[in-house]
């Protein structure tokens, strides 16, 4: 059967349970992924913060077992779940089969309710990849 290239999304979930938490990321990506074309990260679900948060945490991502460091950026939270555009941060990074994706998520301690209590939350890191299928 002829193989062809196809898009595959990979979701890396991150659960933050305490302020200032640093969560290491280390995962082997499926071997049929050949290129990472984009990355996006969003807070999953609703947080009762009463306001938008420009900087709820930051992500650092390395591909190919640490050989490439294409992404280090902040994550925000909005009380409005929909944006005008859902553009991914564009990348064009070839992926080496069986190598790992590494990095970390660092919480900024700003996920607070109106009384100043920390609100646990989850972040989904989306990788927009090309795969051979």
């Amino acid at each position: 059967m002829e193989s062809k290239e196809s898009r595959r999304f990979v979701i890396l979930p991150v659960d933050v349970t305490k302020a200032g938490q640093i969560i290491p990321l280390d995962r082997e990506l499926p071997a049929h992924l050949i290129v990472c074309k984009g990355i996006n990260a969003t807070v999953k679900g609703f947080l009762n913060t009463g306001k938008d948060i420009q900087h709820i945490g930051e992500i650092s991502i390395l591909f190919n077992s640490g050989e490439i460091h294409p992404f280090h950026h902040t994550v925000g939270y909005s009380l409005e779940p929909l944006r005008k555009k859902n553009n991914f941060f564009e990348l064009k990074e070839p992926l080496v089969p069986n190598y790992h994706i590494n990095g970390f998520y660092e919480d900024a301690g700003t996920s607070l309710d109106v009384k100043g209590n920390f609100l646990p939350y989850s972040v989904n890191i989306y990788l927009d990849c090309k795969a051979i299928v």
Partner: peptide
């Protein structure tokens, strides 16, 4: 998430 498949 569906919010990535919609816009305001």
């Amino acid at each position: 998430e569906t919010k990535l498949l919609a816009a305001n």
